[in-house]
Amino acid sequence: KKKYVIKVYFEDTGKEVEIEAESKEEALEAAKRLAEELGLKIKKVEIYP
């Protein structure tokens, strides 16, 4: 089964997080949740198959 690796870059902090997920949708949801939890804004998202 294919996994996606999503790199999320946050504004202000210069922080980046990698998330593995089964689908792009799932990964983007996780990225949004994470940003909310951390109180950060997402600057850029890169998706690698």
Rank of each mutant, 00 (worst) to 15 (best):
A35P: 01
E25I: 08
G39N: 10
L34V: 15
P49A: 05
E16V: 08
E37N: 09
K2N: 10
Y4P: 00
E26N: 06
V45W: 13
E11Y: 10
F10M: 02
E29N: 15
D12T: 14
K24D: 04
K44F: 09
F10L: 02
I6T: 03
K7D: 00
A35Y: 02
L40Y: 12
Y48K: 05
E25R: 05
K41S: 14
I42M: 02
L34Y: 05
E20P: 09
E46Q: 04
E25Q: 05
G39M: 04
V8L: 10
Y4S: 02
Y48I: 07
V8Q: 00
V45C: 13
K1I: 14
T13S: 15
E36L: 13
K32L: 10
A35G: 06
E26Y: 06
K2G: 12
E29I: 14
V17Q: 06
I42N: 00
E25M: 11
Y9C: 05
I47G: 03
D12C: 13
A35N: 01
K1M: 10
G14H: 12
A21T: 05
E22M: 04
E37A: 14
Y4G: 01
V5D: 01
K43Q: 09
A35D: 01
E16R: 06
L40E: 07
K2F: 15
K7C: 07
K32D: 12
E16K: 11
F10S: 01
A21G: 13
L38H: 03
K32Y: 10
G14D: 09
Y9G: 02
E25F: 07
A27K: 00
K32W: 09
L38P: 01
T13K: 09
K3G: 08
K7P: 00
I19H: 02
K15E: 10
E26S: 15
R33L: 07
K44P: 01
A30D: 06
I42Q: 00
E37H: 09
E46G: 02
I42C: 02
E29W: 12
E25W: 07
K15S: 12
Y4N: 01
A31W: 02
K43H: 12
K7Y: 04
E16M: 13
R33A: 07
L40V: 11
V5F: 12
E46P: 00
L28V: 12
Y9T: 10
A31F: 02
Y9P: 00
K7S: 03
A30E: 10
E22Y: 12
K15Q: 06
E18M: 10
E46C: 04
P49N: 11
T13F: 09
E36S: 14
E22K: 04
E37L: 07
E11N: 11
E29Q: 08
V8E: 00
V17G: 03
P49L: 14
L38G: 02
E22N: 11
T13N: 15
Y48M: 13
K7I: 06
R33I: 13
L28E: 06
E46A: 04
P49E: 12
L34I: 07
A31V: 13
I19S: 02
I19A: 04
L28H: 14
I42P: 01
L28Q: 04
K43R: 07
A35L: 02
E11K: 05
D12K: 11
I42G: 00
K3D: 10
V17F: 08
V17T: 14
E22V: 08
G39D: 08
E11G: 04
A35W: 02
Y9Q: 09
L34H: 11
V5G: 04
E16G: 08
E16L: 08
I6N: 00
V8S: 00
P49D: 14
Y48H: 11
E36F: 10
I6F: 10
E16H: 06
E29H: 06
I19G: 02
L34K: 11
K24M: 09
Y4H: 04
E37V: 07
K44H: 14
K15Y: 14
P49T: 13
A27R: 00
I42W: 02
Y4C: 06
K24E: 14
E16D: 15
L40W: 08
D12W: 07
E16N: 12
A35V: 02
A30H: 10
L38S: 05
K43E: 13
D12V: 09
A27W: 03
G14P: 08
